[in-house]
């Protein structure tokens, strides 16, 4: 494929997909080990009412208020889950189920009640985004990467996603040691003077930021899949946290690249004319990777469990 075609049409969606996948997979590793894997699922559902409320308040589709609204909704959801869990003495899974379904229902209702026909805001878009439409029209080939004029018209999602990835990576790098200790042995972490509650909240908020940024670019289905599948597959490959994180990043990149390529070109190879949803395909590829890892991964069984039972 020539650069004239690849750079404007595929380079930016591919990069955005990779950045989103890695930004979600990184915190996903810790959430998985802390048995909070479904937080990603909950956050990606509650983002919808946040975005709708932001739209109603500002009356326009603009990125900043929507991101704020989404982040606000994520925080509200986390607080509500915790409040319901404590006040009602309900197990966390059920509390989460109550909160995210209700907030999602509220979002759908608000969306139906307001006139959003003039703008591009609907439930389907929120669910599976439109990675394919994030094209770079000003590019003419690989040389455009050095062209300041053309670079100024990159889709805004690309620098935003790159920044998010950078922030998430920085957070995890800075707090690596305390995160590791508190994930594996919370009691020990507390005796060392680590404020585990704050750290847990910070981790969830980091995950929410990654989810909201990725959601804006690629839709919620990638977010849920990337929070869980690459870390889960990586968990089958390594017994070291370092190894697990490295594998999960590799798997996330692999899913994004293969998913995008398969969605864009797979149907053409099969003789069909149109591409299929890239977001859905990326999630599907990550599932295939997980299936392979769960079947053949070297560390797939519980440690100490007899093999073949």
């Amino acid at each position: 494929m020539s650069g004239e075609e690849f750079v404007p049409l595929s380079l930016t969606p591919l990069l955005i997909g990779i950045f989103a996948a890695v930004a979600c997979a990184l915190p996903g590793n810790f959430l998985l080990l802390r048995k909070q894997a479904l937080i990603g699922d909950a956050i990606s559902h509650v983002v919808l009412p946040g975005i709708v409320v932001a739209f109603l308040l500002t009356g326009a589709i603009s990125a900043a208020p929507m991101m704020l609204g989404a982040a606000g909704a994520a925080v509200v959801a986390v607080v509500l889950i915790e409040a319901i869990r404590r006040l009602g003495r309900i197990e966390p899974g059920a509390a989460m189920g109550v909160v995210f379904t209700t907030m999602f229902a509220g979002g759908v209702l608000l969306l139906e009640q307001t006139d959003t026909s003039s703008v591009h805001l609907d439930v389907e878009h929120a669910l599976y985004g439109n990675l394919e439409s994030l094209i770079w029209l000003d590019a003419v080939g690989w040389s455009s990467l050095l062209d300041v004029q053309a670079l100024a018209h990159l889709p805004v999602e690309l620098p935003r996603m790159a920044l998010t990835l950078l922030a998430v990576t920085l957070f995890i790098a800075m707090f690596w040691r305390v995160l590791k200790i508190s994930t594996f042995d919370e009691g020990f972490a507390r005796t060392l003077g680590i404020r585990t509650n704050l750290l847990g909240l910070a981790l969830v908020i980091t995950a929410a930021v990654a989810a909201v940024a990725a959601f804006d670019a690629v839709g919620s289905i990638i977010v849920i899949a990337m929070f869980i599948c690459p870390p889960a597959a990586a968990r089958m490959m390594s017994n070291q946290l370092e190894g697990q994180v490295a594998w999960s990043v590799g798997f996330a990149v692999l899913s994004a690249v293969f998913g995008y390529v398969l969605a864009g070109y797979g149907p053409l190879w099969l003789g069909a004319q149109d591409a299929v949803s890239a977001a859905g395909m990326i999630a599907t590829v990550s599932g295939v990777i997980l299936a392979v890892a769960a079947r053949f991964g070297p560390c797939r069984t519980r440690s100490g469990a007899p093999v073949g039972v």
């Binding site: 998985l32 894997a37 889960a232 969605a263 949803s277 599907t284 990550s286």
Partner: peptide, 28 residues
């Protein structure tokens, strides 16, 4: 049952992968 994944991770992966595949089929 057969891997070291806890139930919540298994729920999340089944949910996202099946839903993603379903969306691929919807676009088809």
């Amino acid at each position: 049952r057969n891997t070291r994944l806890a139930e919540d991770a298994a729920i999340g992966s089944v949910l996202s992968v099946f839903f993603g595949f379903g969306i691929v089929l919807l676009t088809v």
